[in-house]
């Protein structure tokens, strides 16, 4: 693809902290290379702001290779921008052309309060994991990899669910700010494996209870989460979570502690 440069207008959400109201600020960036990633374009803007003696824009980022899930940006109405199954860091500027205006917002959900500018607090996800997204095992020597036979299909489906990086795009994209895709992936990856079976019922009940406590909405099965998920987590996981939940309820299982 032909290399080119562009000048852009950016409308970016600025918010001092979680208490104060935020607002959009407009910035101009010049000579942005089509080879840059979206976050590199932000680096250019921030260096420009620092040189001007202004405060740079706070945004989350870490690995910049599409696996950590930190780069939460809602770009022109799309979680992680317009590219299918792509995180913000892997979105490249060749998507845009000279003169474009790009609106960048933080994930918006009451359960994900804005800490500063584009940085949101996603520890609600951590608390959901703490409620049951684990298996209780005695530590000791590592068990032989093939000691427990698991059929290929279950292993594959579990692996696909485990691809979830907990970025929160599902919550950001959902009109109800529901965390069902995330929770369903975390429940599925364990429920499909033998090691996860002993705790599967209390796990489903506990994680759903914590999800509700954090203030996420109900799933209305519209599928925006699946469409925006950078890791292609399927809605079939939500059906599985519903099955796990129904199974736990009708067998009379209890939440733990």
């Amino acid at each position: 693809m032909e290399h080119y440069t562009m000048n852009l207008t950016l409308k970016i959400w600025k918010q001092k902290n979680c208490k104060e109201r935020g607002r959009f600020e407009t910035y101009q960036v010049k000579n942005i290379s089509s080879e840059m990633s979206f976050l590199e374009m932000f680096d250019v803007l921030n260096e420009q702001l620092i040189a001007e003696g202004k405060e740079p824009i706070a945004f989350d980022h870490d690995c910049r290779e599409g696996i950590c899930g930190m780069c939460s940006m809602y770009i022109n109405g799309r979680a992680h921008g317009p590219w299918h199954q792509t995180t913000t860091c892997q979105l490249h500027m060749r998507e845009y052309k000279d003169g474009d205006t790009i609106v960048v917002e933080p994930w918006r959900a009451k359960a994900f309060p804005v800490l500063k500018d584009l940085v949101v607090d996603r520890t609600a996800f951590d608390r959901i994991i703490q409620a049951g997204g684990y298996i209780s095992v005695n530590t000791g020597n590592a068990v032989d990899a093939n000691a427990i036979p698991i059929n290929k299909q279950d292993a594959d489906e579990s692996f696909a669910a485990a691809a979830c990086i907990g970025c929160g795009a599902c919550v950001a994209a959902c009109p109800n700010a529901s965390a069902m895709l995330y929770v369903s992936a975390k429940v599925s990856q364990l429920a499909l494996l033998t090691q996860g079976h002993p705790e599967r019922k209390s796990r489903a009940l506990n994680m759903v209870a914590q999800m509700d406590k954090e203030g996420f909405g109900s799933c209305t099965n519209i599928g925006a989460c699946e469409a925006e998920c950078p890791k292609g987590i399927s809605l079939e996981n939500i059906a599985r979570l519903n099955r796990e939940y129904i199974g736990a309820v009708f067998s009379g299982s209890e939440e733990k502690g």
Partner: peptide, 22 residues
């Protein structure tokens, strides 16, 4: 569900990620 968003998005995905009737 209408109360879980807080501040609304300035730009929304519209029909690109879900169907209007859903």
């Amino acid at each position: 569900n209408a109360s879980t968003r807080g501040e609304r998005y300035a730009v929304s995905a519209g029909n690109k990620t879900s169907a209007w009737y859903s």
